[in-house]
Design a protein around this nucleic acid. Structure first.
Lengths: 352, 352
DNA sequence: ATGAAAGCGCTAACAT
DNA sequence: ATGTTAGCGCTTTCAT
């Protein structure tokens, strides 16, 4: 019985190795996994014969027997985004280094919340650990995950009872606004998240809080017409910028909650002949790899580093059979480029 | 014996379901997997009890017993790139839809070719199928992979004996150059791959061939000083553009083999006050999500679609126990934006 | 249509 | 330090 996909030459099993090395399967297992209580000579002999036979343990068998999968699963809302794929890249590198298999699950664009999190029900026995990236299971989900003995760490969205790697988003908002205020701007617009957020995403709320705090400290407030939803996408940012420019008294500076939205804002500005950095200032968040291409001022976060940190936290929890619940606050940093500048004249889009 | 990571409430096994439903485990297995020879009434009863008990088959057990893993692995040179993460995103969506687990392996930046492909030796028993994205195993590797009964499909780089999804890269080069020639340019520069390519990447060769063909048809040749290596990175593109602008007679138009390199070229031009679209024309390849932001003319390929197509091909091979070896030639399309324009004056960077 | 039973290839307890 | 052995939870013949 030969599959058309390949030959039938059976791969060696642990028993073949045991036979060839003249020891028991248990000894082979111990020797190969570096467990104690194996004579050095035995260990090297086993290793050599295994290598000679090109033996590889069958992960399915070892997972079944051990009840562990040596697999990490990263769950992201979508892979079609610089932010998420960069987090994934950071996590993948760490997992590969520690010899963990790396599964990725994209939650897609399912409308219903229930369906949204359905994949989380499938993870058991597939994975020892979960990295949730801006994904917030509800209380029942979280409890269920925890009770199943799956280690979890999160990036971005905090989940009660699980460790997280995240930036101080209030501080992000504050830094951005203070930069604009320091340049003399006092009518500051904001391009934020979405009005109704299916994912319970609280980053926008926190950044907005930072905005309000920073403004309040200088006796300023944020009027409603200076806030537009940008949906964390390029197009959303473009539309939001249109709204802001069209309002009664347009802002002289704009803070977009992500670089991608800032890119959209840039497009709108270009289309209208508004010179960003002169007629209007613009600052984003992330330090997207293309921000330097358009010379965008931004609040940098080390996105890949955050993913790596979450993976490291997860792996250390798994290997030490320990639960962490603390937050790692990741570094952020203002990167000033040419899209922000001193307030020049009243109004926008007025040629000097 | 309670793990600190979770409670010990045992999850139901197939035996529990069998007991509860009053049938044998074999029947449960058949019923749940939709196999024939199960009475409709039995099937629904089994399904109901399984659902009520929140039973999920243990994948490790089923993989061990069946010898299949229902897992697809995508292998990419790196995840830190728009192109690769977009291919991955496309493939992931398809695999999730077909209920395949989705492993991703980044080959990292290992110098040695041997180490480069080492992960491919680890895939057996972990995965039923492999999607190789711009990854070319050597002859021995490929043969070994094939002999192990692992289904394979590739994106980009062809591998003899495996089906691929790729664009016609000669045509890509031709389209780009013809566009520039049609605009009146006759000194065309090229920002290409790397001088020494560890990965055996033949995309640059093919695109260059297209360039040569298109030029030859109009009686033109490509002089060496009009070719610079851009390494498929932003920085590489920036440096290459510098080289091109600094050469004796700079080109009036430049074709970058990827949008990312074109972005770097854009940076260099901006830094030197060269107005792209007027003083010099620039065209890239990909239609990167960011290209519309800088209004870059490009030869579009549907990157996510390519990843999805490769995944579909793979899954169909696996489910039908069949080997395909044909190539799917993916669509490409010229997208004209503002970075290319008619030849205006002799020389570059000369204000009108 | 259903059941009994023999593995699948490991790990881990328990012996020695 | 090493061996024996009983599972892990499924799938898959082979009976019935």
């Amino acid at each position: 019985m030969e599959s058309p996909l390949g030959s039938s030459t059976r791969r060696p099993t642990i028993e073949d190795v045991a036979l060839a090395a003249g020891v028991s399967v248990a000894t082979v297992s111990r020797a190969l996994r570096g467990l104690p209580n194996v004579a050095v000579s035995t260990r090297s002999r086993v290793r050599d014969t295994a290598a000679a036979m090109r033996y590889r343990p069958n992960p399915a068998a070892s997972r079944l027997a051990a009840g562990r999968s040596r697999t990490v699963t990263v769950v992201v809302p979508t892979l079609n985004s610089w932010y998420f794929s960069t987090v994934v890249a950071g996590a993948e590198a760490v997992c590969a280094e520690s010899d963990y298999d790396f599964l990725v699950v994209g939650l897609g664009s399912a409308d219903e919340r229930a369906r949204f999190f359905a994949p989380l029900n499938q993870v058991e026995h597939r994975t020892d650990g979960l990295i949730l990236v801006e994904v917030r299971p509800d209380g029942a989900q979280a409890a269920s995950l925890r009770s199943r003995g799956i280690a979890i760490s999160t990036v971005g969205a905090r989940v009660e009872g699980f460790p997280s790697v995240r930036v101080d988003d209030v501080e992000v908002g504050r830094i951005a606004i203070e930069h604009l205020l320091d340049l003399g701007h006092d009518r500051v617009g904001v391009i934020g998240g979405m009005p109704e957020d299916p994912m319970n995403f609280d980053v926008p709320k926190l950044r907005r809080q930072g905005v309000l705090d920073a403004l309040a400290e200088r006796g300023l407030a944020l009027s409603d017409d200076l806030v537009a939803a940008g949906n964390f996408s390029i197009d959303g940012g473009a539309e939001a910028m249109s709204l802001l420019l069209d309002c009664g008294r347009p802002p002289t500076a704009v803070f977009a909650f992500s670089d991608e939205m800032a890119f959209g804002a840039l497009m709108t500005a270009a289309a209208r002949g508004v010179r960003v950095g002169r007629d209007i200032s613009l600052i984003g968040v992330d330090d997207h790899e293309f921000s330097r291409v358009v010379d965008l001022t931004t609040v940098r976060q080390r996105v890949a580093w955050n993913g790596a940190a979450a993976a490291r936290a997860l792996i250390s929890m798994m290997s030490e059979q320990r639960i962490d619940t603390f937050d790692q606050i990741a570094p952020i940093e203002l990167v000033v480029r040419s899209t922000t500048g001193h307030l020049r004249s009243e109004g926008t889009a007025t040629a000097p």
